[in-house]
Design a protein around this nucleic acid. Structure first.
Lengths: 254, 254
DNA sequence: AGTTTTTGTTGAGATATCGCACAATTGGAG
DNA sequence: CTCCAATTGTGCGATATCTCAACAAAAACT
């Protein structure tokens, strides 16, 4: 049992990170008390975390509210920059998007969300701007289905049950069992198709990116507007290009 | 004097964050000892930080090396998502890029670097993919010059002297005084032009984004390939569109 | 293989930090 | 203006964590 003993942990770090994560688009400016309740920390502790962050330049403080500064971006950027995958796949994405005239992306899984790590945007079909670091729920995205399909089934199920599945459109599957059935089907056919489950007007097709040993390390997708044809013609028209890139990338992934 | 007293700080948090920042593209996998020397921490302390990060899911540990996980991206993403500016300017960037057929971006300053917070990419002129969160040095970029021009001169100079200025191309200004002269000129004419100082073949023109009180809150730029004409015609052709957007955004920035 | 160097881990005393309870401040409402 | 309610700042004992050093294990070198 590799239990982490008391001696090997740093509570202060864990608390500070949870404080950073309380800042969202909905709550970009927070008082000490707000952060305390959002993070579950004592007010005194939340205050110390926030003052420390401000002192280090990760936060601004106007005497009343705290805001995160762009310095925080260094943390995430350190992570993205440290990943070899984005740099390796970017040229392939650029070529693929150029060739097909549509946006393509590569993402990986973080718990129940997919995280975009590389993207070549072509036209504007989605209402929200996606970029490296952006997140979408796994259950209703083509890349999410592909990545869940690579997990042992109980683990995939655990992640599907972390939060209730929201109906983003009238086509979104919200029953975990129904999604799981799609995940199984995805595993069987080695690609996933999403028909307007994230956003109306948007379809998407994804394949796993495999390393030399056949392990799934990420997912590659193509976003397509509905007027590009029905789901079936979409597969016959675009899947070959995706699998070709999948094969090329597999050669260069150790 | 708003000195931060000993009682108001959390050393553990500061140490942990510095540990995260030791991970870069050059050193994505690090041992405990490497992190210790890179961060200046004691090996025992670095170990506690790393084990804590691993325990929280921010790092992976194979018994020898640590790697950051995509979970770290939540920290930076929290920050970007919490910024109102990117969402407000994105539609303008999209329109501007569409209209002119070139890439436009908005960035802010973090010490001596500009940080992209929004971007509408059009064609591929730059060798590296820029995206929100990406960083470039301020001294050799049009947006950097604009943002430095908004600072008090001693502060701008301090930032120029933080690191030696690298000659990215044969046209890059590397003398801090020469750059400072350009910064002054930028302040005087209220826009900046960069001619292949970042990368050969790439020119760029930038204006400040001002709030209602006239304070500079960010910079807006347009990247142009050299074949779009010489620097002067570039200004006469593209500056009006930039200043128009600048004016529009100023109206909606409180 | 033997030796040197580096690395990971552990312990103990010295500090720093936590969480609680209380004091001070702020912001409205009457 | 004054009071109440909500929020923020502060001292203190109990605990967690840091630093420093020693040690063991592994690597690198001869």
């Amino acid at each position: 049992m590799s239990g982490i003993s008391q001696r090997d942990t740093m509570g202060g770090l864990a608390k500070g990170l949870s404080v950073i994560e309380t800042f969202t688009a909905e709550r970009p400016r927070q008082s000490i008390a707000e952060v305390a309740t959002a993070s579950g920390l004592d007010r005194a502790t939340a205050r110390r975390c926030l003052l420390t962050l401000a002192h280090l330049g990760y936060a601004d403080y106007d005497g009343k509210f705290f805001t995160l500064t762009p310095r925080v971006l260094r943390l995430g950027t350190a992570c993205l920059a440290a990943m070899p995958l984005p740099h390796m796949v970017q040229p392939w994405l650029d070529r693929l998007s150029e060739e097909l005239g549509e946006s393509s992306s590569v993402s990986i899984l973080d718990e129940d969300e997919i995280v975009y790590v590389a993207r070549a945007a072509q036209r504007k079909v989605m209402s929200i701007a996606l970029m490296p670091g952006s997140r979408l729920p796994a259950y209703c995205t083509s890349m999410g289905r592909v990545l869940l399909a690579a997990l042992p089934e109980p683990e995939a199920m655990r992640r599907l049950l972390l939060k209730p599945l929201a109906a983003r459109t009238e086509l979104t599957l919200t029953d975990p069992e129904a999604v799981m059935a799609e995940v199984r089907a995805t595993r069987a056919r080695a690609y996933a198709v999403i028909d307007q489950e994230v956003e109306l007007g948007l379809r998407s097709i994804a394949v796993p990116l495999l390393n030399a040993r056949g392990g799934t390390v990420a997912a590659l997708n193509l976003g397509l507007p509905v007027h590009a044809g029905d789901a079936e013609t979409m597969v016959s028209r675009y899947l070959p290009a995706l699998t070709r890139v999948q094969g090329e990338i597999r050669k260069i992934l150790r």
